[in-house]
Design a protein around this nucleic acid. Structure first.
Length: 438
RNA sequence: GCGGGCGUAGCUCAGUGGUAGAGCAUCAGGUUGUGGCUCUGAGGGUCGGGGGUUCAAUUCCCCUCGUCCGCCCCA
């Protein structure tokens, strides 16, 4: 019984679910491509020191070693835990051969040795998209990425969603004005604000009070607890910004919002939200989080931001970038499990060609070939089973059409084409088959 | 790393100190040119593993492994 069991944190899907999952992957990759991003696929494995350059915790990385290796010195290679570090390494390594701004997307699994639970896995898929500049990178890119994300989530049809938008300089500048000093303390204060929604008021105040005066803590809490629409937030921030960092952050945020409108993103699809901070330390400007209205328990399913210097650990070249990552596994796996994602069959083919006359197999093969050459995915039923069995197979797997023909029909150059969704059936000439299936 | 729940058929689960059941799924047939519906029948279990108590353990106890959920952190 326990001979075969699921491996905790390494999810796998049933055929119909996998088809739905890949459908979503296709939406994502085709939308990325429509904006001119090239697909990149770096190895699953990186050198350990490359992975640790970003300051990842060693314990969460899966090392690689041969089972038969004699020594324990297997610390050289490890599985990637995200797609950003490999990108940094890649850009630094191939700097001379790349064109900048370098635009790539990368969809693939990453591995983390954490305790699995709902929406949290040891192997999970991410769909990253980044633009890397050579020395400089225009702020318009900060708006193009969420515009792409807007299109993707619209096409995914998972209900209403909001792309939350902020700029780290706003938070930094604000905290500095409250008397918080040093990057460590400012980062700590930002984290507290990031948790504002989840924590009780007293706890927030207590934590802020360790970083600033009680009056300022009170003021900070009240400021970030405000509720405004996009324009009102921008006005509010502009009004109180005093130091240069704060002012620059507000200016950048205003520019990004303006560009989003230009790119056709409607006002209700995004929300200026000064309270989001993002956990990762390397973001320096614009930051994003995306939440689904119908599934807030999933948390942020798509996050990212601007970083001043992507590959500083690998090269002296200053390479600013901006990127977003869709957490595909976190997004889709819980929804698939809860039957919230519509399934459309367990086949990639549209048509099943049944076989009634075994001795006429070449004629059936020819039918399948005609359809495939016309770009219609077609499967043939090759087992020697009776027609009802073949129909049942087609029904269960969710084929839209089946074709069948007896010896007489084959001789006359005709076939029966049946739509399994509607039950309609017609006898048509072989030559008209492709046309009626388009 | 810490805390809690659960391991019985392929799946979802009942059950009992005297070596097991349902539904779904699978297979065959009713139906030799038509799927979904229905009827009949069949196959499939060392009751997660190890130890203990007992005449007897799937059931009670201990350990262990696995898995799920929460905390931390994140996608």
């Amino acid at each position: 019984m326990s001979k075969i069991a699921p491996i905790s944190g390494f999810p796998e899907l049933l055929p119909a679910e996998q088809v739905a999952f890949n459908h979503a992957l296709n939406i994502i990759s085709s939308t990325y491509q429509s904006f001119g991003f090239i697909p990149l696929d770096t190895p699953a494995v990186e050198r350990v020191d490359t992975l640790l350059a970003k300051g990842a915790e060693e314990k969460e990385i899966y090392g690689l070693r041969r089972i038969q290796a004699e020594d324990e010195g297997a610390k050289e290679l490890a599985l990637r835990f995200d797609l950003t570090v490999p990108l940094a390494r890649y850009v630094a390594q191939h700097y001379g051969q790349l064109n900048f701004p370098f635009r790539r997307y990368h969809i693939g699994p990453v591995w983390r040795g954490e305790r699995p639970q709902k929406g949290r896995y040891r192997q999970f898929y991410q769909a990253d998209i980044d633009v890397i500049g050579d020395g400089t990178l225009d702020l318009y890119h900060d708006a193009e990425l969420p515009a792409i994300i807007y299109q993707i989530f619209t096409k995914l049809e998972l209900g209403k969603f909001t792309i939350r938008l902020n700029n780290r300089k706003v938070l930094q500048g604000f905290m500095a004005q409250q008397g918080v000093e040093g990057t460590e303390n400012i980062a700590a204060a930002m984290r507290v604000i990031d948790d504002l929604e989840k924590m009780p008021r007293e706890k927030v105040l207590a934590q802020l009070s360790t970083l600033m005066s009680a009056d300022n803590a009170d003021h900070t809490l009240n400021f970030f607890a405000q509720s405004h629409d996009n324009q009102a937030w921008l006005t509010e921030l502009e009004k109180i910004a005093e130091n240069d960092v704060f002012k620059q952050g507000v200016a950048e945020l205003q520019a990004v919002v303006g560009a989003l409108y230009t790119l056709g993103v409607p006002d209700d699809a995004f929300k200026v939200d000064p309270a989001i901070a993002r956990g990762l330390g390397y973001y320096t400007g614009t930051i994003y989080e995306t939440v689904l209205h119908d599934y807030p328990e999933l948390g942020s399913v798509c996050s990212g931001g601007r970083y001043d210097n992507l590959a500083e650990k690998f090269t002296n070249k200053p390479l600013p970038g901006v990127g977003i990552s869709i957490g595909i596994s976190r997004l889709l796996l819980p929804l698939l499990e809860a039957d919230k994602v519509p399934l459309h069959g367990a086949t990639m083919a549209k048509v099943l060609v049944t076989v009634q006359e075994r001795e006429a197999l070449p004629a059936y093969f020819e039918l399948a070939t005609i359809l495939r050459e016309a770009g219609i995915a077609t499967e043939m039923f090759l087992e020697p089973k009776k027609l009802p069995k073949q129909l049942k197979y087609a029904d269960k797997k969710g084929f839209q059409y089946i074709i069948f023909a007896n010896a007489d029909e084959l001789a006359a150059g005709n076939v029966q084409l049946k739509n399994l969704h509607t039950g309609e059936q017609q006898e048509i000439a072989k030559a008209d088959l492709v046309e009626s299936l388009k």
